[in-house]
C-alpha cells in the first residue's frame, strides 16, 4: 500500500483503487438498508427493490432506508469532494467545507424558516431556506474578498469566510435565545445534522447540484494540483488562476450548500476523508476528488447506519458517530505514517 509505484506510473492502479472505493460505497449502502428495527437479508433487500416479497419490507426499503442511504452517500461525497477542493484552494490542510461560512448561512436560513413557521405550511421549506442562506453566505464572502482588491486573494477569502461564519453563529444564538421551546428543539436537531426524513425528492434535489459541481471540480483537478503549490507556480504552468479560483470556490460551496440544506451540519467528513486518501494512496486531485467522494459516501452512509442502530430505538446524531469513529482512526493513521 505504501511503497508501490505512484499512480502516475500506471493507469490501471488508480482505476482499481476507485473501483475498490466504489464497491465499498455500494456495500455501505446495502448494509445501511439491511440494518434497523427490522433487519433484512441482502436477498430480502434486493427483492424489495424489485417490488417482490413482503409489502412491509418493500415500504421500508423503497421509501425509508434506500432514499436515506442514498442521501447520506451523496452528502458524504459532496462534503469530502468540497473539503479536498478547499484544502487545495486555500493551501491549508485544516480547511473543511464549512470553513467559508456556508454552514452558518444555511443554519440562519433554516432557522428563519422554522421560527417563522413556514416549515409547517410549506413542505421542504427548511432545506430551501437553508440553501438560500448558504448561497447568501457564498455571495457575501465573495463580495468581501473582491472588495479587498482586484484579484481574489485566498487569505482574504479565508478571513472573510471565518468572519461571516462567526457573524452567522451569533445570529443563530440570538434567534435561539429569543425563540420558543419547540422551535428551539427543532432548530437544535437541524444544527446537529442527520438524515431523518430523507426522501427520494431530497436525493433528487441533491443530485441536481452534485453532478455539475463534481464534474467541474474533476475538470479542474490538474489546476488544483498546481494551485496547492502556489498561485504563481500555477500561473507559470499555464493556469488561468483567477478563473480557476472562482469556479472551484463556487462549485465547492454549492456542493456544501446542497449538502447542508438537506442534512444540517455534519462535521469531520470533509476534513478527514481527503487526508485519508492522500496518506494511503497519495496522488493528484484528478484522483483525489473522485476517491474522496467515494470514500466520503461510504463513510457517511456507514456512520448513519451506526447512528440509527447503536442505541436503538434512540437515534444518535450522525456527527457523533463520524467523530467517534473518525478521530481515533485518523490519529492512528497520523502516527503510523509520519510526515
Amino acid at each position: 500500500m505504501t511503497g508501490g509505484p505512484r499512480k502516475s506510473m500506471s493507469l490501471r492502479k488508480p482505476a482499481a483503487q476507485l473501483l475498490l472505493l466504489a464497491a465499498l460505497a455500494l456495500i455501505a449502502v446495502l448494509v445501511s438498508v439491511m440494518v434497523g428495527a427490522v433487519s433484512l437479508s441482502p436477498g430480502e433487500v434486493f427483492s424489495a427493490i424489485r417490488g417482490d416479497g413482503d409489502p412491509t419490507a418493500i415500504v421500508i426499503v423503497r421509501q425509508l432506508r434506500l432514499p436515506r442511504a442514498v442521501v447520506a452517500a451523496l452528502v458524504g461525497a459532496a462534503l469530502a469532494a468540497s473539503g479536498a477542493t478547499f484544502q487545495a484552494l486555500l493551501r491549508n490542510p485544516l480547511a473543511e467545507p464549512y470553513i467559508l461560512g456556508v454552514s452558518g448561512g444555511a443554519a440562519v436560513g433554516a432557522m428563519i424558516a422554522m421560527v417563522a413557521g413556514w416549515s409547517e405550511t410549506v413542505s421542504r421549506a427548511v432545506p430551501f431556506a437553508a440553501f438560500i442562506g448558504a448561497i447568501g453566505a457564498i455571495l457575501l464572502v465573495l463580495r468581501i474578498a473582491a472588495s479587498a482588491g482586484q484579484a481574489l486573494d485566498t487569505r482574504v477569502l479565508l478571513l472573510g469566510g471565518v468572519v461571516v461564519g462567526a457573524f452567522f453563529n451569533a445570529v443563530i444564538l440570538l434567534v435561539l435565545t429569543l425563540t420558543d421551546a419547540e422551535s428551539f428543539r427543532s432548530a437544535i436537531f437541524w444544527i446537529m445534522g442527520g438524515f431523518a426524513g430523507a426522501t427520494w425528492s431530497t436525493a433528487g434535489v441533491l443530485l441536481l447540484w452534485f453532478v455539475p459541481g463534481l464534474l467541474l471540480l474533476l475538470a479542474l483537478g490538474r489546476s488544483l494540483d498546481l494551485m496547492s503549490i502556489g498561485e504563481d507556480t500555477a500561473l507559470y504552468l499555464g493556469t488561468r488562476v483567477e478563473q480557476v479560483k472562482l469556479i472551484a470556490y463556487i462549485s465547492a460551496s454549492l456542493l456544501t450548500a446542497a449538502a447542508v440544506s438537506v442534512s444540517g451540519v455534519i462535521g469531520f467528513v470533509g476534513l478527514v476523508v481527503p487526508h485519508v486518501i492522500r496518506r494511503v494512496w497519495g496522488g493528484g486531485f484528478r484522483f483525489l476528488i473522485p476517491a474522496s467522494a467515494l470514500l466520503g459516501a461510504a463513510f457517511l452512509t456507514g456512520a448513519d447506519a451506526l447512528a440509527r442502530t447503536a442505541a436503538a430505538p434512540m437515534e444518535l446524531p450522525v456527527g457523533v458517530i463520524t467523530a467517534f469513529v473518525g478521530v481515533p482512526f485518523f490519529v492512528w493513521l497520523l502516527r503510523r505514517r509520519p510526515g
Binding site: Q87, A88, L237, G238
Partner: peptide, 20 residues
Amino acid sequence: NEEITFPLTVRELVLMGRYP
C-alpha cells in the same frame, strides 16, 4: 516561493512541468 502543503514526490513535482 512555493509552499508544498500536501505530500508530493519529486517525480510528481517534475511531471507538473508537462501539464502545459
